[in-house]
Amino acid sequence: MAILEVKNVGKRFGGLQALGNVNLSVAENSVHAIIGPNGAGKSTLLNVLVGKLIPDTGSVMFDGQSVLGRKPYEINQMGISRVFQTPEIFGDLTVMENMMIPCFAKRDGAFRMHAIESVAQEKDIVGKAENMLEEMKLIDKRGMNAASMSRGDKRRLEIAMCLAQDPRLLLLDEPTAGMARADTNNTIDLLKQIKEERDITIAIIEHDMHVVFSLAERITVLAQGTPLVEDTPENIKGHPKVREAYLGESQDAA
């Protein structure tokens, strides 16, 4: 069953057709990768999914409900969490506080005025955040300022923050961009482990073919704002259309 259903989505920026008639269906509990060369519309599509952009045409259904016209925080509360290309965390706060905020958001919703209780008294939130840090092997950094962590740890923390909300769909925007090979492999292992341990759907936008072929069960190739092919990794690897999109018109490039 599809948890995310994108139908006929189009988006135009001035004279540029960023997305033209995109159809995409992500099956529940699968890992679905969206790949494509620069300017293919991957980021635009992602921004449509999280409510940052509203498409000109088409519909986006998540679990039977339309996400169009909803604000990013409302879409998040529906069960879609997003991991950014450069880790977006609360740099001025400690790692523990970073971890507690999504726990509060999960329990209390988009806004709650609890101004008199102290944070330390919220035993269930503290416990949940500690467990999550433990699981992500970040517990010894709990008192650290999040901004002073390494790039890899920031990525881990951001993923942990998303998971703390028990999302049904985790969107990753080039999660290994700018990472060293070792960090990339760590991230791949982490995502594999997450997939094994939870009922979660993962949609991943990625440049790095190594990451895509290590993780994805289905792959959609975008080019010039339209899906070119959708298939299993094995079939995508040798697909002539994909080679053409990535390597250019010339068929005998090799």
């Binding site: 965390i89 609890h114 939130i125």
Partner: peptide, 27 residues
């Protein structure tokens, strides 16, 4: 009390990163 409350923590989070706030389901 406000500084030490979850509400105070949310206010510091607003200062730190509004984007992450929005994508963590917080208005």
């Amino acid at each position: 009390r406000i500084f030490r409350s979850p509400f105070g923590m949310m206010l510091r989070a607003v200062k730190s990163n509004q984007q992450r706030m929005n994508y963590t389901g917080l208005n």
